[in-house]
Amino acid sequence: MRILLVEDDQGLWQAMKIALSAHSIVLDVAADLGQAREALSNADYRALILDWQLPDGEGVSLIPLARRLHPGLPVLMLTARHHIDDRIQGLDAGADDYITKPFDVNELLARIRAVCRRPAQPQIPTITLGALQFDFANRCASLNGANLPLPRRQLLVLETLCLRAGRTVSREKLQEAVYGFDDNIESNTLESHISRLRRTLAPAGVEIHAMRGLGYLLQTADEP
């Protein structure tokens, strides 16, 4: 899952990035509205977390653009404002939820899960391919009913391929799902993750095919 955080407090966003990465969430950070507009124009996100007060304006002003570029994008307001009128203003501006600083990371994770379950976001509870099952709600994989422990980035690659099982996923889409825009990506890193996944999934009768010039395709071994 890739999320955009618009927040200018470096200490806060660094702590959030570390905490969320432990839950297989890739967090891109924009320090102001200008950087946020550029990020929204160049990448796909599952959710947007907006600080209220930013160096170049109020975070709520970004919501109309975010929704034009990404219809149905869940928006979570993150702010130090506690007054009920502020909450109403944020929700009326189009935010889906509201969390005040300081906050507990577990509460933030719960609110992220909640806004991403909105009816506008089609939900696929699980997918089964051969002996592989991927649970999207809990973001975990299993083989023959046994939990499949995967490193974070391999899990993100598998999640993205499972969401589009039977269809080709471009290299760019996979990289967007796995890496933030400030991550250093070596040329063969994605291939390394896919190679390890292939070995892991082989006993399940599931294959990842490289489609030359197009991307990668996840399907069962008996599919043509």
Results as ranks from 00 to 15, higher is better:
residue 179 Y to A: 04
residue 77 M to C: 06
residue 67 R to Q: 14
residue 93 A to K: 13
residue 195 S to F: 07
residue 141 A to Y: 03
residue 57 G to L: 10
residue 130 G to W: 09
residue 84 I to T: 14
residue 191 E to C: 09
residue 163 L to A: 15
residue 176 E to N: 13
residue 67 R to I: 04
residue 24 S to W: 08
residue 7 E to V: 03
residue 138 N to Q: 14
residue 95 A to S: 10
residue 109 L to D: 11
residue 85 D to S: 13
residue 48 L to S: 08
residue 183 D to Y: 00
residue 18 I to D: 07
residue 96 D to F: 00
residue 134 F to L: 06
residue 146 A to K: 14
residue 126 T to W: 07
residue 87 R to F: 03
residue 144 N to E: 08
residue 177 A to D: 02
residue 179 Y to C: 03
residue 139 R to D: 11
residue 63 I to R: 09
residue 94 G to H: 04
residue 155 L to V: 01
residue 159 E to A: 08
residue 154 Q to G: 00
residue 78 L to W: 04
residue 89 Q to V: 08
residue 95 A to D: 04
residue 39 A to S: 14
residue 111 R to Y: 02
residue 8 D to T: 07
residue 219 Q to P: 05
residue 203 P to W: 10
residue 84 I to K: 12
residue 131 A to L: 14
residue 100 T to F: 14
residue 12 L to A: 09
residue 7 E to Y: 01
residue 145 G to A: 09
residue 7 E to F: 01
residue 165 A to Y: 00
residue 77 M to F: 09
residue 116 C to E: 12
residue 13 W to L: 06
residue 37 R to L: 12
residue 224 P to W: 14
residue 133 Q to C: 12
residue 37 R to Q: 15
residue 197 L to P: 03
residue 87 R to N: 06
residue 11 G to W: 10
residue 48 L to K: 08
residue 162 C to M: 09
residue 13 W to E: 03
residue 37 R to I: 08
residue 176 E to P: 06
residue 156 L to N: 01
residue 154 Q to V: 00
residue 12 L to R: 10
residue 218 L to Y: 02
residue 215 G to F: 13
residue 116 C to P: 03
residue 36 A to M: 08
residue 77 M to R: 08
residue 218 L to C: 02
residue 56 D to R: 11
residue 96 D to P: 02
residue 98 Y to N: 03
residue 66 A to H: 02
residue 96 D to C: 03
residue 127 I to F: 00
residue 105 V to A: 13
residue 9 D to K: 10
residue 217 L to C: 10
residue 185 I to N: 03
residue 53 Q to V: 12
residue 14 Q to Y: 07
residue 108 L to D: 09
residue 207 E to F: 07
residue 178 V to N: 00
residue 198 R to M: 01
residue 135 D to Q: 07
residue 119 P to W: 01
residue 169 V to G: 11
residue 181 F to I: 04
residue 173 K to G: 09
residue 164 R to F: 04
residue 214 L to H: 14
residue 169 V to K: 05
residue 32 D to W: 07
residue 137 A to V: 11
residue 185 I to E: 02
residue 144 N to S: 11
residue 96 D to T: 01
residue 189 T to R: 15
residue 181 F to M: 07
residue 42 N to R: 15
residue 142 S to P: 14
residue 78 L to V: 05
residue 196 R to V: 02
residue 219 Q to I: 04
residue 86 D to L: 01
residue 217 L to S: 07
residue 181 F to H: 07
